[in-house]
Design a protein around this nucleic acid. Structure first.
Length: 210
DNA sequence: GTGACGATAATCT
DNA sequence: GATTATCGTCACA
């Protein structure tokens, strides 16, 4: 049977404060249509909010050509290149002129894991050559690679045919969500702006035991 | 299981 | 010229 893309999230979903969008993106489904027609999808289990000029860890701390998309209207993709080899995918939120974006840090892969593994390369396979589903999309650069997201998708509509966000099981109830400090950054590390699905085995880093 | 390290280039100062 | 919203590999336990 053929998998079809459900209708996109409403435009109003994205035109809200960044922290709210980051939290409510948990449980939604990200869809990607490849140029050859293949359809890939995964459920969002980890996000991080990046704010505006008051957030020194955010690319929008300064308004530059790279961060310009973050100043535009919500509902578009912000894709940047870093460490000389990785792409990361963000969801722009807020209104025109109010910068903010949510970094997608991990997905639970759900549609066409074989194709994702082919895009990821040998690092996503186990010792016997099988797909290791936890190595496909558990990290911002990993999920971008698994969905073939690169700079050409910067500014793309997240309610379109190439990239789309759909409702999935969102919004998740409060007990299912945990908020932690952001990771992988050196500035503003005290800010609690990382949102994770507490019991997901697909996080980029497991939650500390308590 | 954990931690150190190098890869590699766009972006900004 | 310095920095980087990362990952895979390797050593070691």
């Amino acid at each position: 049977m053929t998998v079809r893309m459900p209708p996109p999230l409403p435009a109003a979903f994205f035109c809200r404060p960044t922290a709210e969008v980051a939290r409510d993106l948990l449980g939604t489904d990200l869809w990607r249509r490849l140029p050859d027609g293949a359809l890939l999808s995964g459920r969002i289990v980890e996000t991080e909010a990046y704010f505006g000029p008051d957030d020194e860890a955010s690319h929008a701390f300064r308004r530059t050509p790279r961060s310009e998309v973050m100043y535009g209207p919500g509902g578009r993709a912000y894709v940047y290149f870093t460490y000389g080899m990785h792409f990361c995918l963000n969801v722009v939120c807020g209104r025109q002129g109010k910068p903010g974006a949510v970094l997608l840090r991990a997905l639970e892969p759900r549609v066409d894991l074989e194709r994702m593994a082919a895009l990821r390369g040998p690092a996503a396979r186990d010792g016997r050559g099988g797909v290791d589903s936890r190595k496909l999309c558990s990290g911002p650069a990993r999920l971008a690679q698994a969905l073939a997201v690169d700079r050409t998708l910067n500014g793309a509509d997240l309610r379109g045919e190439i990239l789309r966000l759909t409702r999935g099981t969102s919004p998740l109830p409060d007990p299912a969500v945990v908020v932690t400090p952001r990771i992988g950054i050196r500035r503003a590390t005290e800010r609690y702006a990382r949102y994770v699905v507490a019991d997901s085995p697909f996080l980029s880093r497991p939650l500390p035991r308590h």
